[in-house]
Design a protein around this nucleic acid. Sequence first.
DNA 1: CTGTTAGCGCTTTCAA
DNA 2: TTGAAAGCGCTAACAG
Lengths: 337, 337
Amino acid sequence: MSEAPAVSSSGPRRARLRDVAEAAGVDPSVVSRVLSGDGRLSIRPETRQRVLAAAARLEYRPNRAAQTLKTARTMAIGMVVPDLANPAFALVAEGAERCGADAGYALVLIRRTEGGRLDDLVGRVDGLLVAAATSDVSYRRELFGGLPAVLVNRREPGEIPSVVVDDAVRHLLSLGHRRIAHVAGPQTADTARRRLAGWRLALAEAGLEPEQDAVIEASAFDEAAADRAAEALLAGAARPTAVFAANIRLATGTLAAAHRLGLEVPRDLSIVGFDDHPLAAYLHPPLTTIRMPLVELGAAAVESLLDEIDGRRAESRLVDTPAELVIRASTAKPGRA
Amino acid sequence: MSEAPAVSSSGPRRARLRDVAEAAGVDPSVVSRVLSGDGRLSIRPETRQRVLAAAARLEYRPNRAAQTLKTARTMAIGMVVPDLANPAFALVAEGAERCGADAGYALVLIRRTEGGRLDDLVGRVDGLLVAAATSDVSYRRELFGGLPAVLVNRREPGEIPSVVVDDAVRHLLSLGHRRIAHVAGPQTADTARRRLAGWRLALAEAGLEPEQDAVIEASAFDEAAADRAAEALLAGAARPTAVFAANIRLATGTLAAAHRLGLEVPRDLSIVGFDDHPLAAYLHPPLTTIRMPLVELGAAAVESLLDEIDGRRAESRLVDTPAELVIRASTAKPGRA
DNA sequence: CTGTTAGCGCTTTCAA
DNA sequence: TTGAAAGCGCTAACAG
C-alpha cells in the first residue's frame, strides 16, 4: 500500500477565477459578477463576451469551498434518513430534491447512524430535513449543531391524529367488519402513535370500543417484527376479521403470518396497510393501502426549511394534499367463507 | 413572504479558531495542531489542556469550508444512486459508509437525476461511488467533472459472467428442472447482461440448450415490467417449470403473474431471484434467492475510491466474499402436482 | 515548545 | 464601466 507510486494526478490545474480574469483581460471581480449573473452590473456586451468565452475555454468551475467560505452558504440541504431501505423516504426525497433544485440547492441524503453525530454536517449543508421515524432521540437543535432543521412526516402534537386512518377504518367498517385489530409500529415513533390514535378514534366514532388485545405493537417497523406480533394476534381466541397495519412493511409481515396460520386473505382476514408502494400491488393478494402524498410532503418540508434558512420563520407548513385509499384485493366482507 | 421580520439568528456567533487561541492565550496555529491531533507536535500538557478547555468552552467547531479551501479535501464521498427505492443500494451504502467513516470520510447519497449534471458535485465530495444499474449513459470521467469515481456492482468485461448464477441454476437442475426460463433485466444494465450470460452458461454446462423464448427481457427492473414479461412467458405454449429472475423485484413481479395465471408456486412453477432482501422471506411463498455480499461490496468500493483519491492506482478491487443461495419455499421439484 | 507568515479562491464594498 | 482591496477561517512550512 505505502509503496504505491503516488501518481498525483497533475493534469492541467483547474482554472481559477483569476485565470479567467487574466485570459479575458479584466479584473477577477468582474468575472465573478458576470458569472454569478449579478443584476445591477452594467458591463459592455463585448467585455461580457470576452469573460464568458474565457471561462468556457478554460472550463472554469468555481471553487465551492471558496464560495462557501465567503458567503457562508453551502447551497446544499441534507436529508437525514434512519433507514434507506424504507421506500417512503425515497418518495419524500424525490419531492425534496425537486423543490430544492428550484432554489438552487442540492439535496444530499445522510443515513442516520446509531451514535448520530449529526453536527458534523455543519458546513456541509445549510439545513436539515429530518425524516426520522422514531422520536426516541429527542431531536433537539444542539443535535444538529444549531443547523436549521425541519422534521418530516410529523404533525404538531395538538393536531387531530389522522383523518386519513379514518378512511381506512371506515372502509373496513363499511365492508361489515367489527373486530378490527391494529398492528402498531413501535410507539417510540411519532407516526406509529398517530396511527394508533387514529385507529382508536375511528373506532370510537363508529361507536365501537376497541377490545382488549385488539392492538399489538411490533417491536420494529419491519416484516419480521410484524410477523411475530401478528401471529400472537391471529392465533388468539378472539381472532379479528380485519387488521389495520401501521405501514406497508408491517402489513407484509401480517400477511405472512396469516398465510402461515392457514388464513386466506381476504376471505378469513382483511388487511389494509399504511403507505403505498409499488410493491403493494404485487403482493399476494395485492394489498389495500393508504397512499400518502409523500412527494408533496418532501417538497413542502424543503419550502419550510428554506424559509428557516433565510431567517424567515417557518410556519409549520402542512401538506394538505389528501391521502388516498387504494383498494386492492386484501379487503373483503368478513366471513365470506 | 417578503414582509417577514427577518429574524436573522444573531445568537452568539460561532467561535473561530482565532477565538479559541485568544481564550487559551496561544497562537491559532497551535490550536489547529492540537485539535487535528498532529502527531509530531510537542506541546506542554498544560498548554494542550488550556487549548482543549477553551475549545470546549467556546463550543468550537472548525469551519469546514475553510478547511476544505485550505486542504483541497472535503472529506466526503458521494454515492450516486439511480433509484433510492432499490434496497440493494441501501446495503451497499451501509458498507460504504462504515468503510468511509473509518477513514474519516462522510458518505452522502445523491439521487442521479435524469439530466445528470453530476459535475456540480465537485467541491462537495472528493470522490464518487457510482451505483448505477444501467449503463445507458456511458460513465465517462468528464461526466463527473474529473472527480475520482468507481463503479459499484460491476465487473470487468473480461471476467467470467457469474459463478453465482451457476449456483441458482444448479439448484434448479438438481431439483430436476430442465425447462428453466430467465426473466432478464433491461439489457442496457451491466448486471442484467451478466446474469443473462450466467444463466446461459450454467445451462450450457449442464449440456442444455436454452430453448427459444426461454428468456424474456423486462423493460425495467421493477415488478410491473416483470409482471408483463412473465405473463408472456408463462402463458406461452411451452411453459417452463422454473424461472430464474434477474433480481428480487423481477422475481416479485413474476410471482404476481404466476398467481394471476392460477399457477401455484412452487408446485407449478419454481422461482429463484437474484439479490436477497428482508422482504423475500415474507412473500408468498417465501422466495429462494441469491444473497450477494452487498455490504462488503460497498466497503470494497470505498477502499478503491480512497486509493484513487489518494493518487494510488485503484486496482479494480473485487469482492470475493461468496454469494450465497438462500433456499426458501419458492422452489421444489417440477411437476409435483 | 510556540509563534509568524503566507496564502487557499472567491465575493463585495468602495473608489476610480 | 471597471478595478482595488479586504478579508471569509483555516493550515502548514518555517523560524525562533
